[in-house]
Design a protein around this nucleic acid. Sequence first.
DNA 1: AATAGTTAATATTTACAACTATCAACTTTC
DNA 2: GAAAGTTGATAGTTGTAAATATTAACTATT
Lengths: 149, 149
Amino acid sequence: MEAIKNKRMPVYPISIAAKLLGISIPTLRMYEKEGLIIPHKSSGNQRIYSEMDLERLRCIRRAINESKISINGIKSIYSLIPCWEVVKCSESDRKTCNAFQSHEQPCWTFNHPNTICENRDCRECDVYEKYSQCGSIKDLIKNISGIST
Amino acid sequence: MEAIKNKRMPVYPISIAAKLLGISIPTLRMYEKEGLIIPHKSSGNQRIYSEMDLERLRCIRRAINESKISINGIKSIYSLIPCWEVVKCSESDRKTCNAFQSHEQPCWTFNHPNTICENRDCRECDVYEKYSQCGSIKDLIKNISGIST
DNA sequence: AATAGTTAATATTTACAACTATCAACTTTC
DNA sequence: GAAAGTTGATAGTTGTAAATATTAACTATT
């Protein structure tokens, strides 16, 4: 048995996740329906949340409750993540990719037929994993621009 | 007398602007207080709106009413505009610039002491003028990244 | 096989952001 | 200089996004 604590490992059923976050179960489902989070699913289609999922959700809650950014606002912000630079997709990938065009939905809410992302799991993609907060998104934009330091 | 129609020319007092947009005067003042718009001011401190201001405001209204993005969401989105690439500020400018750090407020809501923006009027800056809609912001991010076509 | 927890879907509640109204002091217009 | 319009500020209203409750069918646990 692995005793290593893995933040990515799905461990919490929805009732526990809701309790830990202090919100209701339908709210968690809504965040998922809106594309803000992609929880792992069991073989019987039940949601299982990891420690990282909880961190992500706390970040989302802060955006909603403290920063007063609406869910659609968060989605729009996520849609601005320069995913093409993170996954290093090709020019032809970009040409057909719906996510590349969108400024309303995060890229991980799209199918990606005929792109480098086609058979990848967005849940394990850096775009989804690393850029869940606004600050890190701006940092990424800084990095991809021609900035020295 | 110039007969040329200049979209940048301030011409509408607040009552007319409000009527043209179908909103109340206090709402227009609120958008300004939130930093979404910078109307021209007369010598007696009265607001005067240009055709471009109205276009900008229609864009903001669409974001709020149709896209359901909250005002703070719009501010956060504006804060992600890579202004440093537009105004071509120096590394030392960036080091001290509050706007460069922020992911909550658009750059034009900050003072810019000791930067290239110090004595410039944000109202006439490309950052403010050209990137009032989400789509154009993503296009700018695309342009500054190492994308070919 | 019985109990507890989950699913998706719909209906309902609630908190508050967005907006409006009103005010006395000031500016503009004719 | 009188009438009309604007200023910032405060108080009040309202539409609806966000959150919750409830349901019958399903999955997991003992």
